[in-house]
């Protein structure tokens, strides 16, 4: 009898996670539906101007989406190569002792609060970049993206390394026995075998960059900007939500509803990336 009660309580705790998900989706959809009653969905997706708080409001998510994807792209350009090379090194070359020291240190990096990274981007990286690129504005996508890239290196490196370490030793032995060097083995045998696991690591890194808030809110500026030039300032979806939350908008106003529509867009994008990563990993697991 008591045993059963314990099990039921534990089950309710586990089920609470499902309730949270339902609540998240419920709140976002409920407020967004109110928003889409006043702004047609097609306008939301195609208008190229986002000025919901102006006297003459326009509600096109594209500039914010553009800012989000541009910062993510810059971050990926930094974290992709570095993370991959670090992962190959850690998985195929590093001595166990080196790995034992490096891995915990990488974990430590993920403990740095993002607001501190934001400070670093705005007051250290941006001035540094301004020396190289004259005329770079104080808020810009480049600096925020670079710092965000540094932030997700450990993430990509560690997940990719796990995927590569899971490749059976026999494949490496076979390649080495044919006279390939360890480097050739790493890039022509191990990496192709682990490719879907590595791709999943990249996709999860992207998803994290898309949802990152503080670095971009601090260093990339608050101006929605439809541009492909990383030297310009551009607000992201997350930065917009922060901006609105800071200025106290009345509950139920359309301005208040915009952040839920923006949040729903964000959730959907990260969901797509996460499903993609899930699928890639499942494929990788199937192979071995």
């Amino acid at each position: 009898m008591r045993e059963k009660a314990v099990e039921i309580v534990l089950f309710l705790c586990a089920a609470s996670s499902v309730v949270i998900t339902i609540a998240i989706v419920g709140v976002l959809v409920y407020e967004s539906l109110a928003f889409f009653r006043s702004v047609p969905l097609i306008l939301f997706l195609t208008d190229t101007v986002w000025t919901p708080l102006f006297a003459n409001p326009r509600y096109g998510i594209l500039p914010l989406l553009n800012g989000t994807l541009l910062t993510t792209l810059v971050a990926l350009c930094v974290a992709g190569p570095l993370g991959l090379v670090a992962a190959v090194y850690l998985s195929e070359f590093a001595a166990p002792r080196v790995r034992e020291i490096v891995k915990p240190t990488l974990e430590l990096l993920s403990g740095v609060p993002t607001v501190v990274y934001g400070f670093f981007a705005l007051l250290f990286v941006t001035p540094l970049l301004q020396k190289v690129i004259p005329g770079l504005p104080g808020f810009n996508v480049l600096s925020a993206g670079i710092v965000m890239g540094i932030m997700i290196i450990p993430y990509i490196a560690s997940l990719s390394e796990d995927a590569m370490r899971a490749v059976p030793q026999g494949l490496r032995d076979g390649s080495l026995a044919l006279g390939a060097t360890r480097l050739e083995t790493a890039f022509r045998v191990v990496l192709p075998t682990a490719i879907s696991g590595v791709a999943a690591a990249f996709v999860l890194g992207i998803s994290r960059a898309v949802g990152e808030t503080m670095v971009v809110a601090i260093a990339a500026g608050q101006q929605p900007n439809l541009t492909l030039d990383p030297r310009e300032p551009a607000a992201t979806i997350t930065a917009y939500i922060v901006q609105v939350a800071l200025g106290d908008l009345p509950h139920g106003s359309i301005g208040y509803q915009t952040i839920f529509a923006a949040g729903l867009t964000l959730l959907l994008i990260t969901l797509i990336f996460n499903i993609l990563a899930f699928w890639l990993r499942a494929r990788f697991r199937e192979a071995y």
Binding site: I20, I24, S207
Partner: peptide
């Protein structure tokens, strides 16, 4: 299965979305 998939999905939800949940709920 649902709970398990759900937990791994929750881990990947951007933190700001939790803020929106809290604001609305």
């Amino acid at each position: 299965n649902i709970i398990e998939i759900n937990v791994s999905n929750l881990a990947a939800v951007p933190s700001i979305v939790y803020g929106l949940l809290a604001l609305g709920l």
